[in-house]
Design a protein around this nucleic acid. Structure first.
Length: 300
DNA sequence: CAAAGTTCCTGCGAGC
DNA sequence: TGCTCGCAGGAACTTT
């Protein structure tokens, strides 16, 4: 569940469950996700009190009072499920650490519950990730600047990004604009779904070359100005939708997924374009090995 | 067959 | 012409 809006929703949920709490135990049920878990990960976290939950791009950055930063990326299928103390009391936590006590959760058998974090208030958070594309790192706060994963990132869409900055990046670029949107050096947080959505709303063909959205003078075209605006809009709306589903976050069901009811183009191949008066039919193409959904009629 | 993400490798074109 | 550099596109990771 991992584009910026979903990560931001998770961030808010974790803030609610973790902030001010102290970690009493960490259990890992396998040696790695995408990368090996950090050296001595469990012991270093025990006794640490959570002082902030931040987000950078699609990364969650959890600060502790011992000046550690616990970095968590959800990959494609990672999620956290929060069990409060009352819920936890329904489970037997004294079973061997190698086995998840939360097997009944989310319809899974617990096989993919790779990490368990217990807190001093009796709550337990379980990280589940079937595909294991997720990432976990642990470093000192002072080392954050030199983290390779973070140092390559481009601007946050809301804080540091505008049409001129986008134009500077698009200038001379021979990649399609869809591919460019997915490039986290161009702008962070946009993934396959919201890239499709923003291009549709902005009326721009995903195959259009990035360079075509910049004038000879290096200024953004009207289309690029609109696109930058639509990216921010679609992300804002999705965050708002996520915020409204936050109650579900603490639910044992843990069904915090994409806010798919709001998609106007993604996943709608062969269905009618929803743009007012367009009458086109949604097509699916593949760009850089990713599906792109668009309307050939209203996206030029 | 496809899937919401990211890194790494290869191959190609531009330029010296 | 030949080599190097940088960029663009694709494969790979994994399970359902």
């Amino acid at each position: 569940m991992p584009e910026l809006p979903e990560v931001e929703t998770v961030r808010t949920g974790l803030e609610k469950a973790w902030l001010g709490r102290t970690i009493t135990k960490v259990i890992l049920r396998r040696p790695n996700l995408r990368y090996p878990f950090p050296e001595d990960f469990e012991n270093r976290l025990v006794g640490q009190k959570i002082t902030a939950i931040r987000r950078r791009a699609k990364y969650l950055l959890i600060d502790t009072d011992g000046d550690l930063v616990f970095l968590s990326h959800l990959g494609m299928s990672g999620k956290y499920t929060i069990f409060d103390a009352q819920k936890v009391s329904q489970y037997d936590l004294n079973i061997p650490d190698s086995k998840s006590a939360f097997g009944a959760m989310s319809g899974f058998d617990g096989r993919h519950d790779h990490m368990e974090i217990r807190f001093d208030d009796g709550s337990v958070s379980v990280y589940t990730d079937p595909r294991r594309f997720g990432i976990v790192k642990l470093f000192h706060r002072a080392e954050q600047e030199i983290q390779p994963l973070l140092s390559v990132l481009g601007p946050e869409p809301f804080d540091d990004w505008n049409a001129q900055i986008a134009a500077n990046r698009c200038r001379g670029k021979r990649s399609p604009i869809k591919t460019t949107l997915l490039d986290q050096r161009f702008v962070v947080g946009v993934g396959n779904i919201y890239a499709c959505e923003a291009l549709h709303t902005a009326g721009i063909a995903p195959t259009k070359l990035a360079a075509q959205l910049v004038t000879k003078a290096g200024k953004p075209t009207k289309a690029l100005v609109k696109l930058v605006d639509e990216v921010k809009m679609v992300l804002t709306r999705a965050i708002a939708a996520g915020g409204s589903t936050l109650n579900d976050f603490a639910d044992v069901e843990g069904n915090l997924g994409y806010f798919s009811h709001h998609f106007t183009i993604y996943g709608r191949e062969d269905e009618p374009c929803l743009k007012e008066g367009c009458g086109g039919v949604v097509e699916r193409i593949v760009q850089s090995n990713r599906s792109t959904f668009y309307c050939p009629r209203c996206q030029k």
